[in-house]
Structures are given as C-alpha cells and as structure tokens.
C-alpha cells in the first residue's frame, strides 16, 4: 500500500494507492497516515477512489486516522466506490465523516 499526498492551501489530499484496506493492511495504513498527515494543514481529504474493498479493520483504521488528527483538524473522505460506500452506510460512519463525491468536489469546497 502507498499513500500519495498533495497539499494545496488549507487542504491536503491523501490518495490511497491500493485496492484494499483490509486486516492485512490496516495497521500499516494507520501508521502511514500518522506520518503523512504530520503537518498542520487543517483539512485532510482521504481519496478512496482506488479502494474497492474495505473490512472492519480498514474501517477502524480510518476512524483511528481521524482521531490521530486531533480535535482541530478534519478528516474528510472522497471518491467512495460502491462497496466502500455501502460499508460506511451500514455502520452509520457516513454520519461521522464529511464525504465528498470526488476529490474535485472536495477541492471546490476547501481549496483557495
């Protein structure tokens, strides 16, 4: 799994370059998120458009990544594929995160 980061203004986009965030990848994902979101950019948007599969461990790791940011910074999600979207809705996690249809939609909200 790789994460790619792009910062523009008040917004950091972190793209998950992997098709799965599962039990085998969850801890690594959480650690990599901690490293890559180490700066103070207030809005972090996690681009999940390449992720086709997530399980309960992956979901927990995304919640952990949000909590790692602390109370003053936000983690939003973008580009949920149908399977990932279903998992977020089933667990009501879609009410915890702001979810953007795509990275472009998130940029329209946050970028300068």
């Amino acid at each position: 799994m790789e994460l790619t980061s792009e910062v523009s203004g008040e917004m950091q986009i972190v793209r998950v370059d992997a098709t799965r965030i599962d039990a085998a990848a969850a801890i690594r994902f959480k650690d990599m998120m901690r490293e890559i979101t180490g700066s103070d950019v207030p809005h972090v948007v996690l681009d999940l458009s390449k992720v086709e599969f997530i399980d309960s461990s992956g979901l927990g790791a995304i919640v952990a990544a949000m909590k790692q940011l602390g109370s003053t910074r936000r983690l939003d999600l973008a580009g949920l594929t149908p399977m990932v979207d279903r998992v977020f809705r089933l667990t009501r996690m879609e009410t915890v995160f702001t979810i953007h249809k795509s990275v472009e939609a998130a940029k329209a909200v946050y970028a300068d």
């Binding site: 309960s56 927990g60 909590k67 089933l90 667990t91 009501r92």
Partner: peptide
C-alpha cells in the same frame, strides 16, 4: 449492536467492533 455514534464524542469513537455488526447486517 450498532454503536450510537451520535452520542459519542469524536475521541470516543470505536476503532473496532464493526465486524459482527457488518456480518449481521449482510
């Protein structure tokens, strides 16, 4: 059981325990 996430503060959100809930839902 579904977690009542609206009554939890962000720092109290669970990082696990979704597994059986998802299984039961599907």
């Amino acid at each position: 059981l579904p977690i009542d996430i609206h009554r939890l503060r962000e720092e109290d959100l669970p990082e696990g325990g979704f597994g059986w809930f998802l299984v039961r839902a599907l």
